[in-house]
Amino acid sequence: MYEFIKGTVAELNPASIVVEAGGVGYFVNISLNTYSKLNGKKETKILLHQVVREDAHILYGFADKNERDLFRNLISVNGVGANTAIMMLSSLSSEEIVSAITTENVAVLKAVKGIGAKTAQRIIIDLKDKLGKISETSQILLVPNNTIRNESLSALVMLGFTKKEAEKAVSKILQEQQEATVESVIKQALKRL
């Protein structure tokens, strides 16, 4: 099991990063929160969680230990896979997820794509006692509007939405809020799709 990768950021998208270390480029799936923290950096150290399946070895990366711990707690719940956990960490901050679980707020968890009422209740039952205090600060980064649109669309398509429905949601959000960041556009789109 890999613990972390330290190296040069070869490519960074809202849903993934390629880190070059020792002449090898590692493709790592990341959440939107991790993307916000890594955006603009040339060198990085990214904490990892490896999922080994019959057909693939998949790496999931996190900017900090708290987010990785929350991810591991989420995937320990029956019915919550790695992609669903990343979707949750992209839609909500770690604090929002922990707060929703500790206050038994099913509605907040159900707002995430792929989480139904039963799964939300199972997450709350399984994790309410396990979760301690997780704190992190979110960083808001401003980038030009066209880049925001392209990066948002790319992330939503990588997360499994069709390009057509993603374009509609992103266009509507950018019309409503000209000052939106990539992170806020994707979060709002995840709630609308």
Rank of each mutant, 00 (worst) to 15 (best):
Y2F: 15
F4R: 10
F4A: 09
I5G: 00
T8V: 11
N13F: 15
N13R: 12
N13L: 13
P14L: 06
P14F: 13
P14W: 08
A21C: 11
G23Q: 09
G23W: 14
G25L: 10
V28C: 09
N33I: 11
T34F: 11
K37D: 06
K37Y: 05
L38H: 12
N39I: 14
N39S: 10
E43P: 07
T44G: 05
L47A: 07
R53I: 13
A56P: 04
H57A: 06
L59H: 07
G61I: 11
G61N: 09
D64N: 15
D64F: 01
E67P: 13
R72D: 12
L74E: 02
S76D: 12
S76F: 01
G79P: 02
A82M: 06
N83Y: 13
N83A: 09
A85M: 02
M87I: 07
M87R: 07
M88K: 02
L89D: 04
S90A: 02
S90M: 02
S90L: 01
L92G: 00
S93T: 15
E96A: 05
V98G: 00
I101Y: 02
T102V: 03
T103W: 00
V106A: 02
V108K: 03
A111S: 15
V112A: 00
V112W: 06
G114Q: 10
G116I: 08
Q121Y: 00
R122Q: 13
R122F: 10
I123D: 03
D129K: 01
G132D: 15
G132C: 08
G132W: 04
S135N: 13
S138L: 11
L142V: 14
N146V: 10
N146R: 08
R149H: 08
N150L: 11
S152D: 08
A155C: 11
V157I: 15
K163Y: 07
S171D: 15
S171F: 00
I173W: 00
L174W: 00
L174P: 04
Q177S: 11
Q177C: 03
Q178C: 01
E179Q: 11
T181M: 01
V182F: 02
E183Y: 04
I186M: 03
L193H: 05
